[in-house]
Design a protein around this nucleic acid. Structure first.
Length: 425
RNA sequence: GGAGAGAUGGCCGAGCGGUCGAAGGUGCACGCCUGGAAAGCGUGUGUACCCCUAAAGGGUACCGAGGGUUCGAAUCCCUCUCUCUCCGCCA
């Protein structure tokens, strides 16, 4: 949610910044509505003040046994008038709020201008894509040949975009999760959380998935829950409606969760393999910081995610998303793209964003400085550290051998009882 | 799922339908006191929004949420949510 005062005071500037993201946002309608609302509020509050004064006087007179007849008559008129104004005011506020909730975040000044993914800017590259003496297979072929990925079984249970992992596939996934969590908790200073994987509408609204992107979410039928599309939702909502002390910041949280996405509108994309599933595992990183520290925090959070790929010896590049390609809540985003030999290109495996105060304002997450002044919104950041399913894909494709086996990166072996290679049965 | 109890400020805890944003305590901040501290004394100590703004100031709303009764609701009524206890069920 944008700062309403900023919209009011610098309408044109905000509108211009929003325009860089593409889409159209008419802030004049907003400003008009807001002006109207304030007039209504002033009128309402004047009458309320009068009501309070008169009814106080009624009390005083009654206690003295004096007559309050004409006062009661005045109150008879005031009552309905106030009630009507109050309900109009509330309606107006709701409309404003609804408009506000639909506006995306403003891009940080350092974000490259651009329309779509083609305008993203590569900021660094790590590792060298492997060369093969044979034509590298797609991960689904590698996985099926090893008997660790079973797409047919996933479809049988739940349908398209669900997969069953078997044997070493399941174990490798569990190993990846443990490896990532251990790295972030013991070396990067994050606290491990195991949160609910269903969340309320209020929580989803706080992080920005609702109300605008309901179509992307799975919901429960008989209860008011949504399946979380990312652990960013529960982790960030840990500070919803809280006022933190300055010394508690930054908060660094990590969690493994399953993530559930309907992938509405993704028909025909990545229909084969593990790349785009309705359910996938992810280790998430979240930081809650002071405003002046969030820029630096995004850099370090991104490095924390990159470290996962480096330890796993997976070649990747880091890309700064342009204004037109960023998500709704983000002020700035780096994507990590891992090299996939089967596709011969880099594919997103992590997305690290600073949402600044955007989510904090939605969820009223604040902190108070040592000087004891007014509480102000915190900044919230999130990033995948990293997507587990896609990491499995990357390992299968990058470390596949001519004989169909797959070498396990050293960093992962302790989590697999020393296993160094997946081989065909 | 059944039965019961509860929800008030950072925390604890009062609150006959009227002057209650809310007693009291405690915590915290500042000041006095002290060689220093404790104790003691004094002052202050919620959030949001609006008006006015240089500052000060003023107003409105908020006692879990929403509705109702009333000239007037923290206080009465209804609905909901959450927490706790007991029973049942269950991993």
């Amino acid at each position: 949610m944008l700062d309403i005062k900023l919209i009011r005071d610098r309408t044109d500037w905000v509108e211009e910044r929003l325009r860089t993201r593409g889409g159209r946002h008419d802030l004049n309608a907003f400003r008009l509505l807001e002006t109207e609302k304030r007039a209504l509020q002033t009128e309402t509050e004047q009458l309320q003040a009068e009501r309070n004064a008169v009814s106080r006087e009624v009390g005083v007179r009654k206690q003295r046994g004096a007559d309050a007849g004409e006062l009661l008559a005045r109150m008879k008129e005031l009552g309905p008038r106030i009630k009507e104004l109050e309900s109009r005011l509330r309606a107006q506020e709701e409309r404003l709020q609804a408009l506000l909730m639909e506006l995306p975040n403003l891009p940080h000044p350092s974000v490259p201008l651009g329309a779509d993914a083609n305008d993203n800017v590569e900021v660094r590259r790590w590792g060298t894509p492997p060369t093969f003496s044979f034509t590298p297979l797609n991960h689904w072929d590698v996985g099926e040949r090893l008997g660790i990925l079973d797409f047919a079984a996933g479809a049988q249970i739940a349908g398209a975009r669900f997969t069953v992992l078997r044997g070493a596939g399941a174990r490798l996934t569990r190993a990846l999760i443990s490896f990532m969590l251990d790295l972030h908790t013991t070396e990067h200073g994050y606290t491990e959380i195991l949160p609910p994987m269903l969340a309320s509408a209020a929580a989803l609204q706080g992080t920005g998935q609702l109300p605008k992107f309901e179509a992307e979410l799975f919901a429960t039928r008989d209860d008011p829950f949504y399946l979380i599309p990312t652990a960013e939702v529960p982790l960030t909502n840990l500070v919803r409606e809280r006022i933190l002390a300055a010394h508690e910041l930054p908060l660094k949280l990590t969690a493994w969760t399953a993530c559930f996405r309907r992938e509405a509108g993704a028909a025909g994309q990545d229909t084969r393999g593990l790349i785009r599933q309705h359910q996938f595992d992810k280790v998430e990183l979240v930081q809650i910081t002071k405003p002046e520290e969030s820029n630096q925090a995004l850099e370090s959070l991104t490095r924390d995610a990159e470290q996962v790929l480096q330890r796993l010896e997976l070649p990747y590049r880091t890309v700064a998303l342009c204004t037109g390609d960023m998500g709704f809540a983000a002020a700035k985003t780096y994507d990590l793209e891992v090299w996939l030999p089967g596709q011969g290109r880099y594919r997103e495996i992590s997305s690290c964003s600073n949402t600044e105060a955007f989510q904090a304002r939605r969820m009223q997450a604040r902190f108070r400085r040592e000087d004891g002044n007014k509480a102000e919104p915190v900044h919230t950041l999130n990033g995948s550290g990293v997507a587990v399913g896609r990491t499995l894909v990357a390992i299968l494709e990058n470390f596949q051998q001519a004989d169909g086996s797959v070498i396990i990166p050293d960093a992962l072996r302790p989590y697999l009882g020393g296993l160094g290679k997946l081989t065909m049965a």
